[in-house]
Design a binder for these strands. Structure first.
Lengths: 204, 204
DNA sequence: ACCGTTCTGGGACGCTTGACCCACTTGCGA
DNA sequence: TCGCAAGTGGGTCAAGCGTCCCAGAACGGT
């Protein structure tokens, strides 16, 4: 076992914990399961981190922090018109979900867990700020590219987008019905683009 | 301690378990916590039910079965026009969520738990069938009352409704932002009613 | 080459968990 | 009224949990 600085080990443990959670759920993320995943001894755990809850906090931070650009960086705005672009982004997101359903489920479980844990209670709100911020940026970019405006505030529309993707993800995790999910994403794209208004000939 | 038939005790235990889960989360629903909630001795637990997982199965069945008419029976279709009626139903649903957020979170947690448990893996799909069926019935009733049709299949529109309510609930549980939730429900009602088409003068 | 800090491993602790056993009480049917 | 199945309570078990301790190994500055 190579020597690793405590701070690095802490990060490695957080990643290992996330892997365990994705594979077996939050309740299975015991100290022993985590160190086994990371290939460490049990003592290294408490050398790097004071308590298990502290590590879970790291995991939540890891999730919130990395879910932004990391996973969604591939979501490119492309397509011939606004509707196609929006549908494309939703489809790309959904491909990510389908590629690793366990991980996506782990996100939901972590959110629920954080809501139950007083020390972590503020994280879910931050998580949704990240989601909504990302959605808002995408909407803004789309509006610029296709020279449209939105007939409601972008943050509100972003919230709608987040709710739609969350709802679609949850439904697919439960049913694994690909066709239904695709139809749902079609409707979601319609709902979002319905709020676009063409700008006057001379874009600002 | 009065004598209670094993079958009755089993049902009582399931209700107690649901109460514990709502209050403290799935991971806190230990056999001891459940019997304490139900006011029984630990031995009565395993007399009424073979194993803890068996009881959890009962809880899931209880949730799926009762969530239909029971909780949503109050969702009445009322309002002067379609849009108002749909918004009213969404608002009523949301009032239920806000009245007992812990219980609603318990529903999500149970779904996640069931997805992780092979013996319970088929329940989430059934749960969503119930949701979608309820939404479809509401949409059908609304169409009849306000003499409109839907420009897409009702099951698809029902899936959209379920995704929107799920997404809105999840977002509110995380942020507890009432105003944002109300705005989101406004948009949700718009998205749904956008698919209504007026019927010809002579309704069948 | 040395020494003290930094890191590692194995073992151990106290506690909670799900499960269960067995002696007991209760109440219904004959 | 009586017997026996149905139900109850307390105590107990092994396993798994988070946490901790301590002897020793590896490293970096001198």
């Amino acid at each position: 076992m190579p020597r690793i600085a405590a701070t690095d080990r802490r990060a490695a443990l957080a990643r290992a914990a996330l892997a365990v959670i994705a594979r077996e759920g939050v309740h299975a993320a015991t100290t022993r399961a985590i160190v086994a995943e990371a290939g460490m001894s049990l003592a290294s755990f408490h050398y790097a981190v004071a308590t298990r809850d502290d590590l879970l906090r790291d995991v939540v931070e890891l999730v919130v922090g990395s879910q932004d650009a990391a996973a969604f960086g591939t979501l490119a705005l492309q397509g011939d018109d606004l509707r196609a672009a929006v549908r494309g982004v939703l489809g790309s997101y959904f491909d990510i979900v389908r590629a690793d359903p366990a991980r996506e489920q782990a996100m939901f479980e972590l959110t629920q867990y954080a809501l139950r844990t007083p020390a972590l209670a503020e994280f879910p709100a931050a998580q949704y700020d990240v989601y909504r911020g990302l959605a808002a940026r995408l909407l803004h970019t789309a509006a610029v590219r296709f020279r449209v405006g939105w007939d409601i505030p972008v943050p509100d529309l972003a919230a709608l987008g987040v709710a739609l993707t969350d709802g679609a993800t949850l439904a697919w995790l439960a049913t694994r019905d690909d066709a239904a999910a695709e139809r749902l994403l079609d409707l979601a794209a319609d709902s979002l683009t319905a709020h676009a208004i063409p700008l006057s000939k001379e874009p600002k």
